[in-house]
Design a protein around this nucleic acid. Structure first.
Lengths: 344, 344
DNA sequence: CTGAAAGCGCTTACAG
DNA sequence: CTGAAAGCGCTTACAG
């Protein structure tokens, strides 16, 4: 190897033991200022770089957490990842990111393969439900994004629980309050959980307003490529000729894509159709018209996830604590896309 | 540790040596089918999981590459990251992703700190120019996204060179051919390189068409948060009351944000102002109207970067080969936002 | 404030 | 086809 400068080389050069070099590098133990000076010079002159594998093997700490998520092409996940990397709670930790492409096989593989390289895992499930991932071996502290299933407590899995149902209920309630009663839905299956929960919220809001649920208003889309499936779903919806005065999409990407279809078809938003999305991605705010949507508080999700994870990582044995669950609130973002129809 | 099952435990259980266990796990050497069977059973029964640090320390291979990029909140980078993780050339490699938040200090830190954990690095510079990053120690095969500076050859750095200048020239040429001659620019500094190169392309296209360059048409924005700086820049542009019939944004995010400002101000796109962006992010295709832009061929960039990297990783000594540079083409995406004004 | 020795869990020659 | 031994480069008790 070109780079075979080890701690020992440094120690010899500085005329100290490797222990002292280790102490200086890690700020552990104590040493005189002159010793530190000599060690630092030796490191500099030799171009020494510590071998993280040797350290990891010995100390069993990596100061690294893994973030396992479905797809960076979806702005919600990309923005969530960025928030997690930036959270103050993440200071001092490295974050390695693994995308599973929203594919069940890869999700399982990533989850069971790479835990040993990190001190903890934040897992955003997509293709796998609890029945699929709970049997997988958990060897590191793990925080899951989603609703906690019953068995997770004993497994010491922590959950960050976003307000999918309440958010959907609120935004649909808002559409109803604007006088819209024929509210079509384009619902992707964002993981096995979120889609179902958003649909529940939709139905709850209708029930509350005494509006009947109409199955012909609900379109389901595949979530492999949300942009084009949004276009596809909106096109299908228009073709069915079913009457609707509002459209609620379970995802802003789908909503923005649907907006382009509506606009192209000469349907005015919000005059003919009120439009609402979900997630409050940046692109929603800058759509024309700006999109009414639900903010799941990504920053809060990120902060809570890292905090839960660290607290478990700090434990002697991470299974000493039963699994916890933290609910996150939501914010309804009312924008022009759901405005009251004006006379034209 | 709860999990102190080592290769030795497995070896004892299967009544073989650790060498044989290692062979079975890695598919190296040779062993009888019955031996393999016994080893696999022992692994299964004991719940053995290999310690990657011990392996990395000994074998000096991690089968992992690092992707260092500015900000996952920018769709271009997020989509590029996803492409790199999905590229067929990436098969068999893990990809760890480090976001630098577009911040010079962090960029330097990430770049000099985490190389030892991986077999290679793909580096997307942002805040740092060649003068800043070339002096940093390079201990692993590295591919840089951008134009190759002269000194990079001897450092054995490989470059993937996107068509920033040519792309900008083409899209501005297109706007000119549509009869637009007062072409405003909102140019963020996407790294020290890309912004300057896109501006060169803009000037080249004007020169070619015999149109004078007018400094008052060029607005520069900070790139910390492109969405809001896009809005800010577009607002400023309108306030200057300078006359323009087209707007070229160096970035689709800025273009979409600017579109929302124009629309809100009652300026029709493309009738009053033709609009073009850069990058061809998904949101550009689904803007209303859909955005004319330049596709830098992210997939091709991803594939080329990983291919260059692997070929260097396969070398006995990765510095044996002088630095290489591969140019990537571009595609002009002409969409409705740059259409010819229709009579209203 | 600093050292000498042991050992983390693998893979790599070397041997048979 | 399989074993026994050495060693990768650190940190961790233990000692002084």
């Amino acid at each position: 190897m070109a780079h075979s400068v080890t701690m020992r080389t440094v120690a010899e050069r500085a005329e100290v033991s490797t222990k002292t070099v280790s102490n200086v590098i890690n700020g552990t133990g104590s040493y005189s200022p002159e010793t530190e000076q000599r060690v630092r010079e030796a490191i500099e002159e030799l171009g020494y770089r510590m071998n993280p594998f040797a350290r990891g093997l010995r100390s069993r700490r990596t100061d690294t957490i893994a973030l396992v998520l479905p797809n960076l092409g979806q702005p919600f996940y990309a923005e969530l990842a960025e928030q997690i990397m930036r959270a103050p709670q993440t200071q001092g930790l490295k974050v390695v990111l693994q995308s599973t492409h929203g594919d069940a096989r890869r999700e399982r593989a990533v989850l069971s393969a790479h835990q040993e390289l990190v001190d903890g895992v934040i897992y955003v499930p997509h293709a796998l439900g609890p029945d699929d991932y709970l049997p997988l071996p958990v060897t590191r502290p793990t925080v899951v994004l989603g609703e906690r299933p019953a068995d997770a407590t004993t497994l010491s899995l922590d959950y960050v629980d976003p307000a999918d149902e309440q958010g959907a209920r609120a935004v649909v309630g808002h559409l109803l309050s604007q006088g819209r009663h024929r509210i079509a839905v384009i619902g992707e299956r964002t993981g096995p959980m979120a889609g179902a929960r958003r649909l529940r919220g939709y139905r709850a809001a209708l029930a509350e307003a005494g509006v009947d649920y109409d199955d012909s208003l609900v379109i389901s889309v595949d979530d492999a490529d949300l942009w084009s499936s949004g276009v596809g779903a909106a096109t299908r919806l228009l073709r069915t000729r079913v009457r609707f005065d509002a459209l609620f999409c379970f995802n802003d990407v789908v909503a923005v894509a649907a907006l382009s279809v509506l606009t192209r078809s000469g349907i005015k938003v919000p005059n003919d159709v009120a439009l609402a999305g979900f997630d409050d991605i940046e692109a929603a705010r800058f759509a024309s018209p700006p999109l009414t949507t639900v903010d799941l508080r990504r920053e809060s999700i990120a902060r809570t996830a890292v905090t839960l994870l660290r607290s478990r990582m700090d434990l002697e044995n991470f299974r000493d604590l039963p699994g916890r669950s933290e609910s996150i609130g939501y914010d309804l973002r009312v924008r022009a896309s759901s405005g009251v129809p004006s006379s034209r």
